[in-house]
Design a protein around this nucleic acid. Sequence first.
DNA 1: CTGTATCCTGCCGGATACTG
DNA 2: CAGTATCCGGCAGGATACAG
Lengths: 128, 128
Amino acid sequence: MASDTDDLAFDVFSRQCPSRSTLEHATGRWGSLTLGALYEESLRFNELRRRVDGVSEKMLSQTLHALERDGLVLREAQPVNPPRVDYELTPLGREVAGKLLGLIHLVEGRMDDVLAARTRYDEARGGR
Amino acid sequence: MASDTDDLAFDVFSRQCPSRSTLEHATGRWGSLTLGALYEESLRFNELRRRVDGVSEKMLSQTLHALERDGLVLREAQPVNPPRVDYELTPLGREVAGKLLGLIHLVEGRMDDVLAARTRYDEARGGR
DNA sequence: CTGTATCCTGCCGGATACTG
DNA sequence: CAGTATCCGGCAGGATACAG
């Protein structure tokens, strides 16, 4: 059956489970890329903006807050002038980011297959 | 620099790379749960709806189309009455879903930490 | 530099009704 | 059962201006 091990305390497939929101923060449009970028090294706000191509200030800020609140990202502000703030992964964040990067590399490495599948799909329905 | 191995053909961190949309389909709000549900067994449309708690007909349909187009999900319609359609993972879909499930289980297993982090975060900013 | 505050638009996604 | 079609409200998220 689907889950004979549902003595689980948290089940992401259930609507109200808080784990679902955490998963969404981590896998969301900007969350996954942010975590992926921070895996290699800790980065500052604008460094992140440049690495995560296309993210706006607002969304990066929101994303970082959500990840920080969930305990995946650590925000370290240094009281200097000009202000300097470094973002780095927590141990849990590193684990999550590692899994995410595995997925990212898998997808990147198989894009030829994906593109071929898309072409096939579109051709089969091209006349529509 | 961030990646000294960017002889990669596809870079999800770049805005226009098609791999980004595939990643979003797989990790999106409903995509990850759909793939996760199909990992255990192939399921029919309404079985999926029940397993992925909270998904609407429309979004499940859209999600399945996107995943099918990307070659992650296979749609098998049997010409019987009443109609019966099974959805199952392709080999690539299985790999992706496996990584996703690893992430899901990691998050589920660490929700205590996440919840504690949230409490800490909210208390530190509770007076705000 | 590191962000918040505000405005505004598109489209995400839910509800409902309908078809094969 | 397995979906598509249509409507539409809310919010995701971009642009811009501003603050510390």
